[in-house]
Design a protein around this nucleic acid. Structure first.
Length: 198
DNA sequence: TCATTAAAGTTAT
DNA sequence: ATAACTTTAATGA
């Protein structure tokens, strides 16, 4: 959790609910609020000229959303779209900034989260620049698996659909599927009733 | 080699 | 039921 929900409530944050595929904000909007997810999943994405989706990030309950550019005066370079039913706490940025200036602890927590996002971006940027799809997918899975302690092979179940994995790595689904099958043959992953074990 | 298109099977809502 | 996801195959860059 980035910020204790009670703190956000007492600061005057409001709950907003979203249905799947509803946008919290879209590309070009001016950032005015701090968002923190109470329940549900949200994706940050872009669409290229051909309408192909690239997922910048998947966010879950307890995480915040769009805070990365709240601190500068630029419109959002991406959309935030609910992928499940979502409850989100929304706090105006002026109040959010007040909270931060009053509490070093809060400030650290926000910075910590910002660091994590940045870390993910670096990791993904490195492996996406690889031409090899197997390396891209492996890079993604390595990152996801690093959040758990068990490092044994096949101890991690990838919590993503193949479609999402493809959109996160800039591949098309079919290539992702074929590559994953190939990785299964090479004993890099196991597949149990469509779930990918890594 | 990977993306794209099409078609069909499977799962989730 | 219907939409979303998965899979296979053919074709082209």
């Amino acid at each position: 959790m980035v910020i204790d929900e009670n703190i956000l409530y007492s600061a005057g944050a409001e709950i907003k609910n979203y249905n799947p595929s509803e946008n919290l904000f879209i590309q070009g909007d001016i950032p005015n609020y701090y968002y923190q997810i109470i329940k549900g999943k949200v994706k940050l994405n872009n669409y290229n000229e051909d309408g192909k989706e690239f997922i910048q990030n998947l966010l879950y309950e307890g995480q915040s959303c769009g805070e990365s550019i709240l601190f500068i005066n630029k419109p959002y370079p991406m959309n935030a779209e609910a992928i499940t039913e979502c409850s989100v706490l929304k706090l105006h940025k002026s109040i959010f900034f007040n909270l931060l200036t009053q509490s070093p602890d809060l400030c650290m927590e926000v910075n910590n989260f910002l660091s994590q996002r940045l870390y993910y971006k670096f990791i993904m940027m490195q492996n996406i620049s690889s031409q090899n799809p197997s390396i891209r997918l492996k890079g993604l899975m390595d990152y996801l698996k690093s959040s758990q302690n068990d490092e044994r092979p096949y101890s991690f179940t990838v919590p993503l659909t193949r479609q999402q994995m493809a959109s996160l790595t800039g591949l098309c689904v079919e290539t992702a599927i074929r590559t994953i099958k190939h990785m299964e043959r090479e004993k890099i992953v196991k597949i149990q009733n469509r779930k990918i074990l890594y």
